[in-house]
Every structure is written in structure tokens, then in C-alpha cells.
Amino acid sequence: MAKKICVVGYYFDTHAIIEASRKTRDRGFQKFDAFVPFPVHGIDEALGIKRSCLPYISFVAGCAGLTTAIVLQVWTHMFSWPMNIGAKPILAIPAYVPIFFELTVLFAGVTTAVVMFTKFLGLPNFSEPIFHPDITNDRFALAIEVSSEAEVEPVKRFLKEIYAAEVHHVEGRL
């Protein structure tokens, strides 16, 4: 794996990080990201983030949950163990509805969270650098990933041009 370097510039308020993100995108950088302590309103558009496709995954997982519930209940009652309880119909669809609903929600919810963390965010991941401990406190960082030492200095100059308060670089990926 080729060595990657992140050049990081710091900002101290939300307007500044949004402005800087927009300028970075306008300059044509491809691999960059803003690291922020809380979701900053308007930064998605400034960074050019595309809409997440997570809802589709949730939908599919919900459908899988519903299918599981249908198969589980219909199969056990109609085929595996047909039992007459109080002369209730064997195939009692209305009585199956609560579990249809519960399993749909269970599958969709758990899948959404697990897929979001593991696939979309690539967590758990303990090897990538944490640029600054205050990023989870009150700092806003704009990081640009480059693949060689030679690119570090120009990118640093660019970050200073877009008013980064501090600039440094670390080895590692975005």
C-alpha cells in the first residue's frame, strides 16, 4: 500500500470550516474531508457529499425481516406443528401481524446501525491517525490526503491561503 499523507488545517468556527471546504472543493481536490465535533449544518453541500444510500439498505433489511416473520409463522403453524388451539384458524394472518411488524423493525434497525458503522464509516478502525484531540471538542479540521512528500508543501500553502489557523501533516489516510 502506497504511503499516504494527510495535510490538516484547523479552524475554530463553523462558518470558517464551511468556507474552507467549499474553496477546497472548488480548487479541484478529490481526497479531502472535514473533521468536526458535531454535524455542521451546510457542510455536506460545501464538501460535495452525495446523498447517502443507507435508506435503501434499511428498506431491503426491513423486507428481509418481514419475509422472515412470514415464513417463520406460516411454516411453523401450517407445516411443522399444526395445532388447534381454541379452534382458532391455523393460518391466522391478523394474529401474525404484530410479529410481522416487530421483526421488520428489528432487522431494519439493527442492519442500519451495523452497516452504517462498519461499511459506510469503516469502523471499528483504530489504526488511522486522530489529527488532534480537540476535533471531538471544539476544533474543526480540514484534511487533504496526498500520496507523496512533494505534494505536502503546496497543499500546506493552499490551506494557509484559505485561512487555516494552524497547519500540519501526518502520515495516514483520511
Partner: peptide, 15 residues
């Protein structure tokens, strides 16, 4: 889990 506060991550997280 090694959360770093990436905005691209925050976007998925919020969704």
C-alpha cells in the same frame, strides 16, 4: 470504535 468525526461519516451517521 475509533470515531474521528469525519464529515462524510457524519452524513451517513445522521441519515
Amino acid at each position: 470504535l475509533g470515531w474521528r468525526g469525519s464529515s462524510r461519516g457524519w452524513h451517513h451517521y445522521e441519515v
